[in-house]
């Protein structure tokens, strides 16, 4: 395993869910996660302590030596937001496939039918995508899509605006129109723990303005959405994400995915990637 891959921060647990020490996998290697006297810890297979960060309701670790701090989401700190630990879903696919699906809006009418999208509202208008070199992140902005029920708090269909951000190879942050508070952004994240290169544990997390829904209603909504995504993710061939052009055919609606794949290749992040066309 190269340092390029080891030196990132990875989510390995929801802090509120850590009880007895739990064994899990990170990049194909066994680790143990636990908590003592309120402090979370992670150990590798030899019992060595790994670095930890507690942020966004989750515990993060790294098998390497991260050369930068875990990213932040300043918007999530603004008062009045409900912070939602959604839980986790294990998915038999590359961690990169899970992130790429999160960046995609064109599937909404077909996979999240009558919730995040519905025919005949299938068109994806041009939006802006760039790799922000100064922070080394992928950003897509001015993404718009018609949604029958954009969030638990939405009443009726609205055109939702999105911004997507990839601050780390296996994490994505989505900012989307907030139905009860025009002008503010809801924050929905996808934190992906690479168990192996073809198996991942996905930890969605949200920071929403929603004064009406119960916590379990918000969790159920997001879990329903992700269960629908899982039916896709476990049936893509190959399981790994092809980084080389030729094996899959993008269109204009896939500009975010194209930029994500290009960025992964540029930074040498190949865990869960397929480099040679099969």
């Amino acid at each position: 395993m190269t340092a390029t891959i080891d030196n990132h921060w990875y989510p390995v647990a929801m802090i509120s869910g850590i009880q007895a020490p739990r064994e899990t996998l990170l990049l194909g290697k066994k680790i143990t996660v636990g908590r003592e006297r309120g402090t979370c810890w992670v150990k590798d297979a030899s019992g060595n302590a790994l670095p930890t960060v507690e942020r966004f309701g989750h515990l993060w670790t790294s098998p390497g030596q991260p050369n930068r701090d875990l990213f932040t989401i300043p918007e999530a700190d603004s008062p009045g937001r409900r912070l939602v630990d959604v839980g986790s879903v294990k998915v038999k696919c590359s961690p990169l496939r899970a992130v790429e699906n999160f960046l995609d809006i064109a599937h909404f009418p077909f996979v999240h039918t009558d919730i995040l999208g519905a025919e005949p509202h299938t068109e994806v208008d041009r939006y802006d995508v760039k790799i922000r070199e100064e922070v080394d992140e992928v950003w897509a902005t001015k993404v718009k899509f018609f949604q029958p029920q954009a969030a638990k708090s939405a009443e009726g269909g609205i055109t939702t605006e999105y911004m997507y951000r990839v601050p780390a190879p296996t994490c994505s942050v989505l900012y989307k129109t907030c139905p009860p508070r025009p002008g503010e952004w809801d924050v929905i994240t996808l934190f992906v723990q690479p168990l192996t290169d073809e198996w991942c544990e996905v930890w969605p997390w949200m920071a929403l303005y929603d004064d009406d829904s119960t916590m379990s209603e918000m969790v159920s909504f997001q879990q329903l959405i992700f269960m629908q995504d899982r039916s896709i993710l476990e049936n893509q061939l190959p399981r790994k994400l092809p980084l080389d052009p030729g094996m899959e055919v993008p269109t204009q609606a896939d500009m975010t995915s194209v930029a994500y794949r290009r960025w992964l290749k540029k930074i040498g992040y190949t865990y869960g990637a397929q480099l040679v066309a099969a």
Partner: peptide, 27 residues
């Protein structure tokens, strides 16, 4: 072949519409 060339989704999960086979992922 059970694979949509767009994003590799299995076409056998898709749907028949008119005389076409549609992929369930992006239609």
């Amino acid at each position: 072949s059970d694979r949509c060339p767009h994003r590799g989704m299995r076409l056998s999960h898709g749907f028949v519409r008119g005389d076409t086979l549609a992929c369930i992922y992006h239609g």
